[in-house]
Design a binder for these strands. Structure first.
Lengths: 200, 200
DNA sequence: CTCCAGTTGCGTACGTGTATACGTCGCAAG
DNA sequence: CTTGCGACGTATACACGTACGCAACTGGAG
């Protein structure tokens, strides 16, 4: 009658934002689709659901922190920065795969701007590669914005498709062809072609 | 004791899919952000919430029909098809504005592929313009997919930004600059440059 | 007419995020 | 020691989408 915490208080001060985020991260990382319910998380922490809200603004705030951590693990450029085109394609494709694998992360990116320090740092790395290649800092910013927009948009379509039923009529088959990795690279190629030719 | 339908059945067969969709469309069109709750819709129809589910698979199915109707009203190319670049920019910008104005529509596009007959017809019109300009039918398809992906992705970021608080630090200000209409056209311009130069 | 089968609407219930109000603990000031 | 106070956890409750099973109605067959 004491280890089943049905009606008993958790240790006072035994909960921190870091602990909440870490528990949430492991839960999300484990589950295939990366979904998470506040109540389930509270259960694993042996705590009332509302207790979490002392350390987290809302679910989106929590998921943003979780996604920041997960993406930091998978990020890692690892290509020579001089080959800027290949570098950007690699980074974009890595992000696309991450977002498709964890649709909850996709929702974080779609629902509110991601402005964590780590995210800004990663953005800065991309922009620096682009600036070195394009010369102009403004152009680098605009190019990054376009690539990021395209990448997240594509991931959204891909995730939507993979959660939908198999295509049955011609229309669905036609749309289904739009979300292959090859199509991702084709569109990204268009974008990069346009970017590199913009200043002659 | 008879016009307040608290515990009384609605007329038998007095509900059709068309009526549900129409009522939902007016509700969505009226509300600023275009949100809709099943329970509120049921209330305006003077019917139990669960009654709707005889005529509609789920909320997403309903919203897809509503959005199809709303977008059909605002769609209308109206530029000469010979100027393909201006035509595509106009169509994309029109769609962007629609999706930002009605975030519920955005969610429809992001959560599941839109394959209604009207949507396929509009896509067909775009592809035909591209095919006439580019010659190749495959290239036209790929180009349309890229433009559509970019457009919806951008609308998602724009909608997210406008629902967020004002930017306070440099990071947020930097990201906020990414979602101006000018930036939309810049990125779209990159994309179209790349598309038109792809076959020399 | 009666009966049956199918269609349509509804009551109840579950799981979700979370607003609000309340109890409870630890600590510092008097 | 006592008193107050801020930080923390919890209970309750609401609105949401919707699964499930049942009730009421209609149209056709016998």
């Amino acid at each position: 009658m004491d280890d089943s915490r049905s009606t008993a208080r958790a240790r006072w001060g035994g909960l921190t934002r870091e602990a909440v985020i870490e528990a949430a991260t492991t839960l999300v990382d484990r589950s295939g689709d990366g979904e998470l319910s506040i109540r389930a998380l509270a259960a694993t922490l042996d705590v009332s659901p509302m207790a979490l809200y002392r350390h987290v603004a809302d679910k989106h705030d929590l998921m943003a922190a979780v996604v920041d951590q997960l993406w930091a693990e998978r990020w890692e450029p690892g290509l020579p920065r001089t080959e800027w085109r290949a570098w950007i394609i690699d980074a974009a494709d890595r992000q696309r795969r991450f977002l498709v694998e964890k649709p909850a992360a996709l929702r974080v990116y779609l629902e509110q701007p991601v402005v964590s320090a780590a995210a800004m740092e990663r953005m800065g790395a991309c922009i620096e590669v682009l600036r070195a290649a394009l010369g102009d800092d403004d152009r680098a910013h605009r190019a990054y914005a376009a690539v990021h927009t395209y990448t997240v948009g594509f991931a959204a379509f891909e995730a939507a498709r993979s959660s939908a039923h198999e295509p049955v009529d011609d229309a669905e088959r036609e749309l289904a062809a739009f979300v292959s990795p090859a199509q991702f690279e084709t569109g990204l190629g268009y974008l990069l072609d346009g970017i590199s030719s913009a200043g002659q």
